[in-house]
C-alpha cells in the first residue's frame, strides 16, 4: 500500500489524530520503552518543585514517535528514507494532537513531505519534514 507517484500532487495532505487527552501513563510507557527516564516526564514532584514546570510533560520523542505513525500509515511500511523534526512547544498531559503531512514535491521516486503536529489550541508542537520512496 505504498503511494504511487502518479497519484500524488503537490499540496496533497494526509492527517491523523495522534492522541486524544494524552495520559501520564502513556508518557510512563514511553519512558520505559525508550529508556529515557528523565523525571521531567514522569515525576510530578521533581518537575514542579525542582524544575519549575507546571506539571510533567511528554518526551519530544514521544510526539515524534506518534507523528511517525501518521507518516508510516500514509507512506507505507519501510518506505521512509528521512524524517526530521523540531520540537516547537511542549506537549502536556491532557493534550489532543493532530498531525498533517503535506506533499511538497514528487521527484525521482521520492515524495518530500512537510510535517506538522498541533495541539487542541492549534499551537504547533512539532514541525518537520519526511521523505519516502514511492512507486
Amino acid at each position: 500500500m505504498a503511494l504511487k507517484a502518479s497519484e500524488l500532487s503537490v499540496g496533497d495532505t494526509y492527517s491523523e489524530c495522534l492522541v486524544e487527552d494524552l495520559k501520564r501513563t502513556q508518557i510512563v510507557q514511553y519512558a520505559g520503552a525508550s529508556g529515557d527516564y528523565n523525571p521531567l516526564h514522569t515525576d510530578e514532584i521533581f518537575t514542579t518543585k525542582v524544575a519549575g514546570y507546571p506539571t510533567v510533560f511528554a518526551h519530544g520523542m514521544l510526539t515524534m514517535g506518534m507523528t511517525g505513525r501518521m507518516l508510516t500509515n500514509y507512506v507505507g511500511d519501510g518506505r521512509l528514507t528521512k524524517y526530521g523534526v523540531r520540537f516547537t512547544n511542549q506537549v502536556w498531559p491532557g493534550d489532543t494532537l493532530n498531525s498533517t503531512a503535506t506533499v511538497e514535491s514528487v521527484e525521482d521516486g521520492i515524495v518530500k513531505l512537510k510535517v506538522e503536529t498541533t495541539n487542541q489550541d492549534g499551537t504547533v508542537v512539532l514541525s518537520g519534514y519526511a521523505e519516502a520512496r514511492v512507486d
Partner: peptide, 30 residues
C-alpha cells in the same frame, strides 16, 4: 525529597530541569 541530589545553586531556576536540558530537534536518515 523532591530531588535525590543536592545541587549547587546554579541560579538558573532549574532551567531544563537539571536533566541535561531539553530536546530541540531530531533527524533520522534511514
Amino acid at each position: 525529597e523532591p530531588t535525590g541530589i543536592k545541587r549547587e545553586s546554579s541560579g538558573g531556576g532549574g532551567g531544563g530541569g537539571g536533566g541535561g536540558g531539553l530536546h530541540a530537534e531530531q533527524h533520522f536518515e534511514y
